[in-house]
């Protein structure tokens, strides 16, 4: 599937990209909200890993800006700030799921998401 990673942390972008492409998925990465918007519209991903806190737009704002342009992408909000978010909150923002950083096991993560999206 087509995966879009929007996060301002380089090593995390790299890690997630590697994790997904190792499983054969097509991965795009954006380093901020604005770039993310652009890539989302262009490539219409099926799965979007969206960081909440970014220097330009934050995650929820990106979703808002896209509106219907989110397509049928499965959106996962990610945050290092524990306690602020949970699945329910994420849904309020228009996402499908919430993950908190850091991840326990990146492989399990990818597998889980593969199942969810399909």
């Amino acid at each position: 599937m087509k995966v879009l990673i929007i996060d301002d942390e380089p090593i995390l972008r790299r890690a997630l990209s590697r994790a997904f492409s190792a499983k054969g998925h097509e991965v795009q990465a954006a380093e901020g909200g604005e770039q993310g918007l652009k890539l989302w519209r262009e490539h219409k991903p099926e799965l979007v890993m969206l960081d909440v806190l970014m220097p330009d737009l934050n995650g929820p704002q990106v979703i808002e800006r896209l509106g219907s342009d989110t397509g049928n992408a499965f959106v996962v909000l990610m945050s290092a700030f524990t306690g602020d978010f949970d699945s329910q909150r994420a849904k309020q923002y228009g996402a499908h799921e919430f993950l908190s950083k850091p991840f326990d096991d990146v492989f399990k993560l990818v597998e889980g998401l593969e199942e969810r999206v399909n």
């Binding site: 996060d7 301002d8 942390e9 380089p10 090593i11 995390l12 972008r13 790299r14 890690a15 997630l16 590697r18 994790a19 190792a22 960081d51 806190l53 290092a80 700030f81 950083k101 850091p102 991840f103 096991d105 990146v106 492989f107």
Partner: peptide, 25 residues
């Protein structure tokens, strides 16, 4: 402290994940 901690979580997440991936390879 909270802010700092959260800020640190970001690179940490990357470190852990990438580390796991590389280890596998």
């Amino acid at each position: 402290a909270g802010n700092i901690a959260h800020e640190l979580n970001n690179p940490l997440a990357g470190l852990k994940s990438l580390g796991q991936i590389v280890q596998q390879e």
